[in-house]
């Protein structure tokens, strides 16, 4: 069966397919998951905890996700546009959604190099 990210607390449980996660943003002591269907969900987990959960549950699929700095985890499948100078990163499926997020120049430079390596 396909792997899901399962985030469980004593009250509720969120189960989401990895490809539906566009990005996860740190929101102080919370994290916000932005989904490809336009839904967002705030979780009482810090971003490091979400990263740990993904790392433990997704097996090889975890490589789909990239932690960028302290405040962002992105799904590399949705990277559409990177502008290092403008510190701009657009995540899109080129059809239904487009999210613009910001990261440091150095982080975006490394992300760009990582994607360039992939095509070699």
């Amino acid at each position: 069966m396909k792997k899901h990210i399962v985030i469980s607390t004593s009250v509720d449980l969120v189960r989401i397919a990895p490809e539906r996660v566009v990005y996860v943003a740190s929101d102080g002591n919370y994290s916000t998951i932005v989904q490809s269907d336009g839904e967002t969900r705030v979780l009482t987990f810090q971003l490091g905890q979400i990263e740990k959960i993904m790392s433990e549950q997704l097996g090889s699929e975890r490589n789909t996700f990239i932690r960028i700095g302290k405040s962002l985890i992105i799904n590399r499948s949705y990277i559409y546009y990177i502008n290092v100078q403008k510190q701009k990163l657009i995540l899109s499926d080129n059809a239904t959604f487009s999210h613009s997020v910001s990261a440091s120049k150095e982080a975006l430079k490394q992300l760009k190099e990582l994607l360039e390596e992939d095509i070699k």
Partner: peptide
């Protein structure tokens, strides 16, 4: 848990690799 918070804003990390900036070359 600490290793998952051990990242600076100018670093990236492919999830699953706890060491930041780890970018495997194609070779």
């Amino acid at each position: 848990m600490k290793e998952f918070d051990d990242i600076r804003d100018d670093q990236i990390r492919v999830i699953g690799y706890t060491k930041s900036k780890w970018v495997p070359s194609s070779n």
